[in-house]
C-alpha cells in the first residue's frame, strides 16, 4: 500500500505515468471520480447487452444470430467484470449499483435511451455506435491511471474491436443489397448519426479531473472530431448520406466540419428522460426479476 502526503504529490505520481492499485491510499476525490466512471461504463455495457439480446431472435440467419449471441455475452460479461472492480472500490456495493441503475438514479450511455426500430438500426448501432464507444474506451485505456480498470479494459477493448469487424461485415451486406435494404439503412443512419456523435459528450471542461488525473487520455471534442473524419467518408463511400445539412469540408484544412450540435437530446438522456428511457429501464427491471432464480441458485451452489 502506498500513500501520498497531499494531492500535489499524488498528481505528480500520476503525471509520471504511475498506476494506482486497489489497496493504495488514493485521495477520496480520485476514488469517487474513478468509481463514478466505471459505474457508468458498467451500466452502459449492461443496458447495451440487454438491447442486443432482444434482437437475437430477430437476427436474419444463423450466422447473424451467432454474432448477436456472442456480442450479448460480451457486453453482459463486461458489465460483470466492471461491477466487480467498481464494488471493490468500497464506494457502493454491487447491489446498491444495481438498485440505483434500475430505479433510475444513475446514468448510462445516451445511445441506449433510443429505440432500435428495425434490424437496420441494429446494424447502424454495430457500425456507428460501437465504433464511437470503441474510440472512447480506447482513449481511456491509453492512460487509465487505475490499474484494475486498465487491466480489464485491455480485454474489453480487444473484444469491442472484434465487434467492429462484425459491424463492417453487416454494413457491407446492406450496402450491396437491394434498394429496400439501402433505404432501410439510410433511415437507420438518420436516426443514429447524432446520438453516435453525441456519445463522446460535450466539449471537455478546461479543468476536467478525468484528464488531469489521467483517467482518460483525450478531450471529448478531439475524439468526436476524429470520429467524424473517419465515418463521414466511409458512409459516403458506401453511397449513404449524413443527416447534417451544414456538414462541409473546411477549404483550408480539408477537415469535415459539422453543424453546431444540439445538446438537448443528450441532456434528456442523462436525466433518464430520452425517447426510450422508460421502456429500457422497465425492460432491465423485468430482466433482473426474471433472472433472480439463477443468481439464487448460484449462491446456493457456491
Amino acid at each position: 500500500m502506498r500513500t501520498w502526503n497531499d494531492i500535489e504529490e499524488f498528481e505528480a505520481f500520476l503525471d509520471g505515468g504511475g498506476l494506482v492499485e486497489a489497496d493504495d491510499g488514493m485521495p477520496d476525490a480520485f476514488r469517487q471520480e474513478v468509481f463514478r466512471f466505471i459505474e457508468f461504463h458498467a451500466n452502459s455495457e449492461l443496458m447495451g447487452g440487454l438491447t442486443e439480446r432482444d434482437w437475437i431472435p430477430h437476427s436474419p440467419g444463423v450466422r447473424l444470430k451467432q454474432i448477436f449471441l456472442a456480442k450479448t455475452q460480451d457486453e453482459i460479461g463486461h458489465a460483470h467484470l466492471l461491477y466487480m472492480v467498481a464494488a471493490d472500490m468500497g464506494v457502493k456495493t454491487r447491489e446498491q449499483m444495481t438498485n440505483d441503475l434500475l430505479e433510475g438514479r444513475t446514468r448510462f450511455h445516451n445511445v441506449f435511451h433510443y429505440r432500435a426500430e428495425t434490424w437496420a438500426d441494429q446494424i447502424a448501432i454495430a457500425f456507428l455506435v460501437d465504433a464511437a464507444a470503441f474510440a472512447s474506451q480506447r482513449a481511456v485505456f491509453a492512460e487509465c491511471s487505475y490499474g484494475p480498470y486498465k487491466r480489464i479494459l485491455r480485454r474489453i477493448v480487444g473484444e469491442e474491436g472484434f465487434h467492429m469487424r462484425h459491424g463492417e461485415e453487416m454494413v457491407l451486406r446492406l450496402a450491396n443489397g437491394s434498394e429496400t435494404q439501402r433505404k432501410l439503412f439510410q433511415d437507420a443512419i438518420n436516426r443514429w448519426w447524432w446520438p453516435a456523435v453525441q456519445l463522446f459528450g460535450p466539449d471537455s471542461p478546461p479543468d476536467d479531473p478525468l484528464l488531469r488525473w489521467h483517467i482518460k487520455s483525450e478531450r471529448n471534442e478531439v475524439l468526436r472530431h476524429a470520429y467524424v473524419q473517419k465515418y463521414v467518408p466511409l458512409l459516403q463511400g458506401y453511397g449513404f448520406t449524413i443527416p447534417d445539412d451544414g456538414l462541409h469540408r473546411d477549404p483550408d484544412t480539408g477537415q469535415w466540419m459539422m453543424s453546431a450540435i444540439d445538446w438537448e437530446p443528450l441532456r434528456a438522456t442523462l436525466k433518464n428522460d430520452g425517447p426510450d428511457s422508460a421502456r429500457r429501464l422497465a425492460n432491465a427491471v423485468r430482466n433482473h426479476f426474471e433472472t433472480r432464480w439463477f443468481r439464487d441458485a448460484i449462491e446456493v451452489s457456491a
Binding site: 492499485e21 455475452q73 460480451d74 460479461g77 460483470h80 466487480m84 487491466r151 473484444e159
Partner: peptide
C-alpha cells in the same frame, strides 16, 4: 472462481483477493 463463463465461453472469471484484480 466467480463465474464459469465470462465475456466469452472459453474463459471463466476469477477474483484475486491478494492483488484485487479480475482475472479470466
Amino acid at each position: 472462481e466467480v463465474a464459469a463463463v465470462g465475456p466469452t465461453r472459453c474463459r471463466a472469471v476469477a477474483w484475486c483477493s491478494h492483488c484485487r484484480n479480475v482475472i479470466e
